[in-house]
Amino acid sequence: MAYTISRPKLNFAEKVYLPAIITGLGITIRHFINIVTGKTKVTMQYPEEKWDKKLPPYYRGAPTLVKDEYGRERCVACQLCEFICPPRAITIHAGEIPEKDRWRKVEKFPKEFEIDMIRCIYCGLCEEVCPEQAIFLRKDYAITGLTRQEMVHNKEKLYELGGVMTGLVYKWNDKK
């Protein structure tokens, strides 16, 4: 059923618009004055102020690989992260750990580990799925590069960004 919307009855001041216009001008000039006198809070001025210090501990930045304090690379090239990665940003080429090595029982290590940072969506699933506590999302958010090649983080770069993480579970250590 069609029905008519009742229009409000305007009095003279509302009909000539001018009082309303002046009120509106008052509102805008108040905003203007507030920002000139610095009362209004504005967004962070990015390159000068960065929010590195204010980042929460759960912040998900660039994914990185870590080594533990014994200098062992944590990744065992199980490729779970490669499978779970929604945009398929991770490529792992696994290699075998040689016979004589101390960590022979781990069997596999990543010969090559690449994360394409153009594809990465910073979802954190790789960190979540990792059974070895090897991949962590760190707080780097300004990942830039001039070429596509530069944006693919290889193993060295990932370890360089990740560094050494202590206090992890050492499930491959010798039994005490």
Partner: peptide, 10 residues
């Protein structure tokens, strides 16, 4: 500039 300031921007 003025439009930005009226809209609480810089």
């Amino acid at each position: 500039r003025v439009s930005a300031m009226i809209q609480d921007r810089i």
